[in-house]
Amino acid sequence: MFENVGEIVLLFWRTLLALPQAWRQRQKVFEQFFEIGNASLLMVCVLSFFIGAVIALQTGPILVERSLASAVGGVVGIAIAKELAPVMMAILIAGRIGSAMAAEIGSMRVYQEIDALRTMNINPIHYLVLPRVLAIALALPLLVIFSILVGWFGGAVVADVNQHMEIPFLAFFSDLKNIVELKDVGNGVFKSFCFAIILGVVSCHQGLTTIGGPRGIGRSVTKAVVNSIVLIVIFDYILTRFLLK
């Protein structure tokens, strides 16, 4: 994986240089954007609800036992906004959308469609990579905002109904408000924007470098997802360290 880092950075740079083309490609950006939303919204909802629920379940009783019931909302709120929503959603989208991008571009590469584009003087970065990276960079932060809200809701529901906590629904949110600042949410959303670019560029790169037939496409899909997740987790640490300053 790391031998390709240079190529991935180069593709990222070329995509940045292609940004002035973004308006021309807006139609494709919107198509991709809606596809991402359509494909993931329900999953984001279910996943986020249960992540919020399980964090409340894991932390709540321990805090309540130590008379720290008012901290439960804050702990769940911070954990979800700053860490769990951005990372889990990035991983979900890597599996759901990154894989599809690598498969689609990979099969275009294998079946010479990308060569055909090049013979028509159509730059595959403008035509294929830019719209996908832009769409995911727009969609993932929005999904993360949604995920944070649903996650908090999941946490609040569990804190309310669980017999070891019994923190009223609204009290959970007012505790949350006391601790979680808008900055914390912004923090998580910013991270998700970075993760989106990582997984978009990595998946497109993997697609563009696919060789061989159907087996090559399969290999590319696996590599796109695994490499995206590894890089996302590494960058999660680096970004968190940087944002904590």
């Binding site: 099969s107 275009m108 079946y111 010479q112 469609e113 013979t119 028509m120 003087n121 035509y127």
Partner: peptide
């Protein structure tokens, strides 16, 4: 122009969109 062995048409586009791709893009 190169006519590929397989045709290399873009599978996600219709025939018309394929033929007009150069002009559209």
């Amino acid at each position: 122009a190169l006519v590929f062995q397989s045709g290399a048409l873009l599978n996600s586009l219709t025939v018309g969109e394929n033929v007009g791709l150069y002009l559209t893009e």
